[in-house]
């Protein structure tokens, strides 16, 4: 298993955000759904090694993170796009991605090629020498995706990656996701249920700090009935699972 989470508990002060969550993910594209405040971003941050868990076990890429050495080994194979993505406005796109390649301790000789490849995959190669601040919001988001995938991560965590992308870009991005999911474990947190339906092999649904559903998009769609709110089968499934979990 690339990601194995057992009984994960995270608290912010007295508020319990993740409450004994279990999750197992392997290679492939996984969707992470859930209402606002369900704990999706916190889960992402724990998996990205930014937030420490208060309880439970987290194994990433087959190893439990017990010390600095394991932490760095995992981080070398990690890609992360946070929900609020910041950048250095005066850097060019290439410089920005290059900088993160360096921070991810990629071998220097590999960096130029890897940067170009990452920029090509997100469709920004023709803007590579423009400054970050001159890009549109969607392009900045894509530059963020480029820095996340530049080191060919085995674990890729994308928090709301499609926010700000236009429909055409979203279609392209979904095919990029499928491509990435061939070799890596990709976890995509999103509110856009149709993205999950199209691009993900498996989907997990979190509510109230717990995992309330895990299965394929088709299984999620099947969980819904005609009486459930939603414009598509998978949306109706989503509503039905949440309602059942809260019952």
């Amino acid at each position: 298993m690339t990601v194995a989470v057992e009984e994960l508990t995270v608290r912010y002060g007295r508020r319990v955000v993740l409450n004994g969550l279990d999750l197992a993910l392997d290679t492939g594209v996984h969707g992470l759904l859930g209402p606002n405040g369900a704990g999706k971003t916190t889960l992402m941050r724990v998996l990205a090694t930014v937030a420490p868990p208060n309880g439970g076990g987290v194994r990433l890429l087959g190893s439990a993170i017990t010390g600095e050495k394991e932490l760095r080994a995992v981080r070398r194979q990690l890609g992360y796009l946070p929900q609020t993505f910041g950048f250095y406005p005066r850097f060019t796109v290439r410089e920005f991605v290059e900088y993160f390649a360096w921070l991810k301790e990629m071998p220097a000789a590999r960096i130029p090629v890897a940067v170009d490849r990452a920029l090509e995959r997100v469709g920004l190669l023709d803007r590579a020498d423009d400054r970050m601040k001159t890009l549109s919001g969607g392009m900045q988001r894509r530059a963020g995706i480029a820095q996340a995938i530049v080191n060919d991560p085995r674990l890729l965590l994308l928090d709301e990656p499609t926010a700000g992308l236009d429909p055409e870009q979203r279609v392209a991005f979904r095919s990029l996701l499928r491509e990435l999911g061939v070799d890596a474990c990709v976890l995509v947190s999103t509110h856009l249920v149709e993205d999950v339906a199209v691009a993900c092999e498996r989907v997990s649904l979190v509510d109230g700090g717990r995992l309330v559903f895990s299965g394929t998009p088709a299984q999620l769609a099947a969980a819904g009935g005609d009486g459930d709110a939603g414009d598509s089968a998978i949306e109706r499934g989503y509503t039905a699972v949440l309602r059942a979990a809260r019952a």
Binding site: R45, A48, T49, V50, L71, R72, A73, V74, R75, R76, L78, Y80, P82, T84, F85, G86, F87, Y88, P89, F100, W102, L103, K104, E105, Q147
Partner: peptide, 17 residues
């Protein structure tokens, strides 16, 4: 103070270097 101004602190927290 640049990382905080550029809001890259979170991202920098996940790199091995």
């Amino acid at each position: 103070g640049r990382d905080r101004r550029a809001r890259t602190v979170e991202l920098l927290g996940t790199v091995p270097r």
